[in-house]
């Protein structure tokens, strides 16, 4: 058995205050929630989030994430993210706005590139440097040299003529990614929407993978084209079944809509949010406690149906 396999607590200890953290999955899909709850238990501070900030909302409310460089900070169909909105309003969350492609092209650091020419924000105020907050974000970053000096730069294109916009890339200190299957050596298989987890895993200095299940490496290596992240990029492996609840995990379980609606309601004031945190994060002590509290009936009601990858809304409904 590989020595990469560790406990959730050990893995999350690797994240340091002020780290630039890539949190995998997208919005409400395959978000490493168990790891996020553990970051809260360990009292992480001044983390800098990237690309999309959504179900990470409790980590913002608990003061773990205090800056964000990305394109979207909202809960999709569930509306305003309560803690993100409140912390931003209080000046406790700094946001640097990007478009979606640019918020992903920053991971071109994976290929050793320090910048890329990107035209994805032309005509937008995203290219108006007076709104940039990078200087403030640098203040809280542990590795200050990783935060670019300016948001964008204008250059003459010596190859094809005209003006181009240069976007600096960013190298995350750590990536935390939840996948469906990981091999004992770290090979990852993702089902459904990938986001840019593969790219980010190559860009980050350190990669923590939490998985629905740890499977034999050979099982995944029978069909290597289906694998998303090679074992060479993965530093730590944690088996965390239901580890992305309440987000959706393709082929494993569906979105827990009621849980999210209840969260949004209860997190609308800091006081009520802290009560929610006590109930769902601190008092349960660990992920097993969280699952016990959810209960087998609730979890089973979310389980994906084979052949669909999700649970059709009318499935087995009488």
């Amino acid at each position: 058995m590989s020595d990469k396999i560790v406990s959730l607590e050990e893995a999350v200890r690797e994240i340091q205050n002020g780290d630039i953290v890539f949190i995998g999955g997208v919005l409400d899909s395959r978000v490493p929630m168990a790891a996020i709850y553990e970051m809260i238990r360990q009292g992480k501070k001044d983390l800098i989030g990237l690309s999309i900030l959504a179900l990470e909302d409790p980590a913002v409310g608990a003061g773990c994430i205090s800056a964000f460089i990305g394109c979207y900070a909202w809960l999709g169909a569930f509306g305003k993210a309560p803690c993100i909105a409140r912390k931003y309003e209080n000046g406790e969350l700094i946001i640097e706005d990007l478009g979606h492609n640019d918020s992903l092209l920053i991971y071109m650091s994976a290929f050793g590139l320090s910048s890329v020419a990107s035209n994805y924000s032309i005509g937008s105020d995203l290219l108006n440097l007076k709104y940039s907050k990078l200087d403030k974000i640098r203040e809280i970053a542990r590795n200050k040299e990783k935060i670019p000096k300016v948001k964008y730069a204008k250059i003459e294109d010596p190859f094809f003529g005209g003006e181009r916009v240069l976007l600096p890339t960013i190298k995350p200190d750590v990536a935390v990614i939840h996948v469906q299957q990981v091999g004992t050596e770290g090979t990852c298989r993702i089902f459904g929407v990938e986001g840019v987890d593969t790219l980010a895993a190559f860009a980050a200095d350190k990669v923590i993978v939490t998985a629905e299940e740890i499977v034999p490496e050979d099982y995944l290596r029978e069909d290597p084209n289906r694998n998303s992240i090679p074992c060479t990029q993965v530093d730590m492996i944690v088996e965390v079944p239901w580890g992305a609840h309440p987000s959706v995990v393709s082929h494993y379980y569906d979105l827990d809509i009621e849980f999210i609606i209840d969260y949004v309601k209860r997190a609308s004031t800091q006081e009520d949010f802290e009560e929610w945190l006590e109930e769902w994060v601190f008092s349960v002590e660990n992920h097993e406690g969280y699952l016990n509290k959810l209960g087998i009936e609730r979890l089973e009601s979310l389980r994906a149906v084979k052949g669909y990858g999700f649970r059709p809304r009318t499935w087995l409904r009488r």
């Binding site: 899909s29 999709g76 992903l104 089902f191 959706v248 809509i257 669909y308 990858g309």
Partner: peptide, 22 residues
């Protein structure tokens, strides 16, 4: 309900990363 969930990738032609499509 989710823009990034399995109802989206179900039987699509190819499921690649966000950059590919955007």
């Amino acid at each position: 309900i989710s823009l990034f969930g399995p109802r989206i990738s179900y039987k699509c032609s190819a499921q690649l990363n966000n950059l590919h499509s955007l």
